[in-house]
Design a protein around this nucleic acid. Structure first.
Length: 565
RNA sequence: UGUCCGAUGGUGUAACGGUAGCACAAGGCCCUUUGGAGGCUUUUGUCAUGGUUCGAAUCCAUGUCGGACAGCCA
């Protein structure tokens, strides 16, 4: 894969060429208030990718400045997801805390003492003040994008008073929300974020990482740039909505008069993907309202959901590479993701035979009780994957879709009086269709051309169709979960309430018959059920019950053909 | 009636003043003991109008359209 190229990497390459920084240092700074999704994967691939390509380092940092929304469960999931995504790819680029070994993330909350001192420094420079305005008043004083705000009456407090008040805020003397620390910038700035933004607020809340040490917490804008500075970040890459915050980022570091070089912020467009939603708020809603089974439901666009579904980190990285990095807010076709998944799985998946919706076939000229071992290829894309044996018996199952009494034109599969190849086995001919009293097909009685299997006299005979099958007596049962897109429209965010567009058929469960080797299916192993799709074992599998997830179906040219009519 | 950002086939991107290319999607053909994979192939594009230039997707101006911003969220 060629090295990616985009406007941010161009900037980085330029800085390296002019020796602006001794080493490139990026960071991935999620807030632990939800699980990571595929949009974060884009950011992870960007930040760790840059570190990889330019000999740099990338820190994983919890952006945990709001104790009321953050939880350790999220911290743990983030660590697991990042580890999984960059494993074997960018492990060497991962930044470690001094003395750190395993994947222990950085925490913005580890810098609370230093951030506090920087706030004091700003007060001492006369660049920040304690404001007693209520939240409502603060809103009102801020004005709006199209008209200027007005100065807070507390704006010109004495430095000594500000210092005293700030210390007492820290000491817990004031209730929740009573006062704030604000930067003294410009209430009439056309950029709303420069209208004396709040730097610290009072929150008498326990923090998942610092416990009860603090009752004042820095705002994102104040904590983020300082955290970047403390860690020696050179390129602070975030999404487009922070573009208007960049002047504030620069103002804070500039007015703190810190030794150079300072980090700089660069913005790119977040990922929007068809037929799903990407905001943590909405994903959380799907979870809390039990529309999905959890953050790692295989239908979720979360990293843990995709992992559980059977998507590999390589596929996700390829996807990230393919979509590129720009400042244009587009909607990525979900087919791009699906292609990346299929391309990856095609190379690695072990082929197996499994019948999702069985219909019984009796080979009338094959002896009862006989079990013939036939040889099957594990992966035609990978000779090293070897071969295996599959049992052939008189009674088999084939897919319901693979037989039609009155087939349309170009239907290559089994029909009354017609012939079809059973993969790795014989050519069979359908002699008789057996139905029950209500007219449903219960059994197909067929004869096999017993010379037609591989190496046989008539093995070269051409029949138009080849279908998969399993031995009825040797098959193992499995619950197979077939997932479809979560929404029925490509952009559920665009037209009102996203939940109106939920796909009610996003999960279908079938009782499948699988070839015996699937009895030993292993977690993490990817399978291709021939002619159907890619599958992997679900974590809910028990010794009594095998549960299998469909990662994605195979491309289906026939379905396309049928649609044309 | 504010500030900032953006606009290249259906979608996502590349081209850094010099032949508009790639991927996905769509169509066609070949091949196939997976209607998979693979191979070959076709269609479709620089938001508009001016300007600078020998030459503009690229630089400039204006317009149009789209996005972000008014949390004590990040």
């Amino acid at each position: 894969m060629a090295a990616p190229s985009d406007f941010i990497r161009d900037i980085v390459a330029g800085h390296l060429a002019e020796k602006k920084y001794p080493q490139i240092h990026t960071r991935f700074p999620p807030e632990p208030n939800g699980y990571l999704h595929i949009g974060h994967a884009k950011s992870i691939c960007l930040n760790f990718g840059i570190a990889r390509e330019f000999g740099g380092i990338c820190n994983l940092r919890m952006d945990d400045t709001n104790p009321t929304k953050e939880e350790v469960e999220y911290v743990d999931s983030i660590i697991a997801d990042v580890k999984w995504l960059i494993g074997g790819w960018a492990d060497q680029q991962l930044g470690f805390k001094s003395g750190g070994k395993s994947l222990e993330p950085f925490y913005a909350s580890d810098y609370f003492d230093q951030i506090y001192e920087y706030a004091v420094a700003l007060i001492n420079k006369g660049k920040a003040y304690i404001c007693d305005l209520t939240p409502e008043q603060t809103d009102e004083y801020r004005g709006a994008p199209d008209h200027p705000g007005k100065d807070s009456p507390f704006r010109n407090r004495r430095i000594s008073e500000n210092l005293d008040l700030f210390a007492r805020m820290k000491a817990g003397e004031f209730p929740h929300g009573a006062r704030t620390l604000r930067a003294k910038i410009d209430m009439s700035s056309p950029n709303v974020w420069l209208r004396d933004p709040i730097l610290y607020r009072i929150r008498h809340a326990e923090h998942h990482h610092t416990g009860n040490k603090w009752c004042i917490y820095p705002m994102y804008d104040f904590a983020h740039c300082i955290s970047d500075y403390i860690e020696g970040i050179t390129h602070s890459i975030c999404t487009l909505e922070f573009e208007v915050h960049r002047p504030l980022y620069d103002w804070i570091l500039g007015n703190l008069e810190l030794p150079r070089p300072l980090p700089h912020q660069y913005e790119f467009a977040r990922l929007s993907l068809g037929y799903t939603v990407m905001s943590k708020r909405k994903l959380l809603q799907l979870v809390t309202e039990k529309i999905v089974t959890g953050w790692d439901d295989p239908r979720m666009p979360t990293i843990s959901g995709l992992r559980r579904r059977g998507v590999t980190p390589e596929a996700l990285r390829h996807f990230a590479y393919n979509i590129g990095i720009t400042k244009y807010n587009g909607l990525t076709d979900v087919a791009v993701l699906e292609h990346a998944i299929r391309e990856d799985l095609n190379k690695r998946a072990l082929r197996r035979l499994a019948v999702l919706r069985p219909i019984k076939v009796v080979i009338t000229n094959f002896p009862e009780g006989k079990i013939e071992e036939l040889e099957a290829v594990n992966n035609p894309e990978d000779p090293n994957a070897g071969k295996r044996k599959i049992p052939f018996t008189r009674e088999l199952y084939i897919e319901q879709d693979d037989f039609m009494e009155v087939p349309p034109p170009k239907y290559f599969r089994l029909r009354p009086g017609g012939e079809v190849r059973l993969k790795y086995a014989y050519i069979i001919k359908c002699d008789e269709v057996v139905k029950n009293a209500s007219g449903e097909i219960t059994e197909l009685r067929c004869t096999a051309d017993l010379d037609s299997k591989t190496g046989g006299a008539t093995s070269a005979r051409k029949v138009k169709g080849t279908i998969h099958w399993v031995s009825a007596t040797q098959a193992v049962d499995a619950e197979v979960r077939l997932y479809d897109r979560l929404f029925t429209v490509e952009d559920p965010d665009a037209k009102g309430e996203f939940k109106e567009f939920l796909n009610k058929n996003s999960l279908e469960v079938v009782k499948a018959k699988c070839e015996p080797s699937l009895k030993d299916a292993a977690p993490e192993t990817r399978y291709q059920f021939e002619r159907i799709g890619y599958f992997t074992l679900d974590k809910e599998t028990t010794p009594e019950k095998t549960v299998i997830n469909r990662t994605i179906s195979l491309k289906d040219a026939w379905a396309k053909e049928v649609k044309k009519v």
